[in-house]
Design a protein around this nucleic acid. Structure first.
Lengths: 216, 216, 216, 216
DNA sequence: CATGAATGAGTCTTCATTCAT
DNA sequence: GATGAATGAAGACTCATTCAT
């Protein structure tokens, strides 16, 4: 159940949940330090020593909380994804029964806002997306997002959504893709402010229309 | 001009182009080995030693062609992106003046086919997208793709595309995002075969319609 | 101020001064090992691995104290020069006001004694005089020696020294040159025991007389 | 006898003496390149490849003339020392029977002029003085210089030189020491132009006087 | 003979991890 | 528990030297 809670595969979960107050502070300090070092120095230079240093604790202390470096990194990504996922799940819950347009508008806004709240962090964490258990975490988060969005779409009043499951996935991939493009600098600066707008168009039109490619 | 040709930032470009036959063989062997090791072992274990070993040459030989590991990795990504970019550029060129629907259909098909031709390779190369000059290469490739697509859209007969530049970017980001989702296993298996279809819907509807969010 | 204390240019100074007892032992062991390996194997073979081995510690421990091989070597030379310089400075201080003959005699004796106290070490360190920051260290030591000697000469009772600054340098170069010749085996064995004597003659006559070349 | 001619110990002598014209050119080019690279890049970076490159030949060609890197370096030093030695020998020969003052003056001038003719080269070669057979070459050159100077001193008309052999060595060491100090930047700039003058005083007074330390 | 591609032993250096204090 | 010194495996990279062409 530990797995279920943190989304971390087997041996990648933190060693112990901090119970005392001092522990909690240290734990958080390490988490923050991890992201900072990751952002400022890159994955390769995000070493346990440097993280510990930045967190103001000893390496030994760090290993008190995480069994190894991968777990440390995975935890950073995990926390980020968990926050994002929860936010979206809550959002979708609240939008149940709302008109499609509002669903799309608010979902897009919420998603991007969550992703862009701390751009540095979000950007840095892409480094973990290829290794250290990142793929698994991302996959799981993806599933949860898909489910949440699909659940919301099912309640769409006019019932225009034929396959909510697929639609949920399509929306999630679209949003993730655009967020990544913006965060990694792969979108022209002038597009950045219109990203939300464009995503809405993309998604809204996709959902409300299915003429063309149905007869390919 | 070296930069212009390879898309590799100065210090990341290969050391020398092989002139003799033996050289060419070694050079290619190294390139192939790089991708294989990357795919099978991951970025961290894609060491110069292992690559050389797999290529059946000595480390020294490897360093005769690449000044350092990063250049080796960058070159692998570069070649991949160059192929993709050229393919799309050619495709867009040929589609000039075609009806919108055909444009979209063929662009999507070509893009995904190119990306999926060698899935293992494409998947492996995502590891380089965060470092080793990857971001620069990707950015440049992105610009070229955007331009190519925009150029094509400009010739759309019915003239429904208001802002081809933006549209080009949107399309590219969309396609890249979906390709990545599929390749990294972030799309449910059952969606995989419909990816092309869904992308077309997404893009075609986006292009042909702009009712909703124009009045937000 | 670190620079001022060790005479080592910024990036060549040791990493950290050992505070705990264990550290101090390791630190000293490394220093001694460096000189031994240097003496027995030569500069080229004075590798970090070999030094660590000889010191009975791991390479890692070595790198805890020195940022790189050059710093290790520089430190060895630095310590030697600092000792020499301090000794001479003290000597010159005590000889202030003494008659010229005694000044020369004792300075020469002290200098050579200091240099020859550990011939193996002194000999070995010549290898660092061309690189690894050696030239800078030597230059600085030279300046301090010159100053010390000049300061002493200024107090010569009979006031025969016209230009103490120049004389100080001349003396220092002379002494260094002869010490080197002896240590590197460039002086015939039979001269070795008379070196002090000869140096005194050279220097004393130089100082007390300046007839000839003043009318060249 | 090869040894006798080149002054190079056993396996450090060049592989073959170039007989053909083309060979001679290549041979010289390599020699010059060696010194240039040594001067500009330092001993460590004076690699066979770089030297060959600079000389405009292939590594293979270089190995045609020198059995290994050490021989290449030793040869550079050897040539330098041979030139110096010959010059001094000729000088001493011509000064036989001259008055002491002239002997000293011209010897000092000739020595320093020879050493300073190509400062860059002389400076660079100090790097070889600790290894690669350098010590042996220097020792041999020292002996020849000592002998030459002693031979000259023997013919001094007024017969004031008690022990020409020792005196010869003292003079040689003195001159070498000052030359080195100047070349390695260990003499204050303002002294540089007076070096000859100072050396003469040092040596002349040493030779003509032996009052003091004879009664220590 | 010259070339320069290939070799591979050997360097320096880093860093995850352990463990005596 | 916390500390941080020590470990040592592993990686990047160089370069003297050889040898097929």
């Amino acid at each position: 159940m530990h797995i279920a809670m943190t989304g971390l595969p087997n041996n990648l979960s933190p060693r112990k949940s901090p119970v005392q107050q001092r522990s909690q502070i240290t734990f958080d300090a390490i988490h923050i330090a991890t992201i900072q070092v990751l952002a400022h120095e890159g994955l390769d230079k995000c070493t346990t020593t440097r993280v510990a240093e930045r967190a103001g604790v000893s390496v030994g202390a760090l290993y008190q909380y995480y069994p190894h470096r991968s777990a440390l990194l995975a935890a950073a990504l995990s926390r980020h994804l968990t926050t994002l996922t929860s936010t979206i799940e809550r959002c979708c819950e609240q939008l149940k029964g709302a008109p499609l347009e509002r669903m799309v508008r608010e979902l897009v806004d919420t998603f991007l806002a969550a992703k862009f709240r701390n751009k540095m962090e979000a950007r840095a964490l892409y480094a973990i997306s290829v290794d250290h258990g990142g793929p698994l975490l991302i996959e799981e988060a993806g599933r949860r997002l898909d489910t949440a969005i699909a659940g919301m779409l099912t309640t769409e009043p006019e019932n225009v959504i034929q396959n909510p499951a697929i639609a949920g996935t399509i929306i999630r991939i679209t949003l993730s893709g655009f967020a990544r493009a913006v965060l990694t600098g792969n979108a022209p600066a002038e597009l950045e402010e219109h990203i939300g707008h464009q995503c809405m168009r993309l998604i809204y039109n996709y959902l409300s229309d299915n003429r063309m490619p149905s007869t390919p």
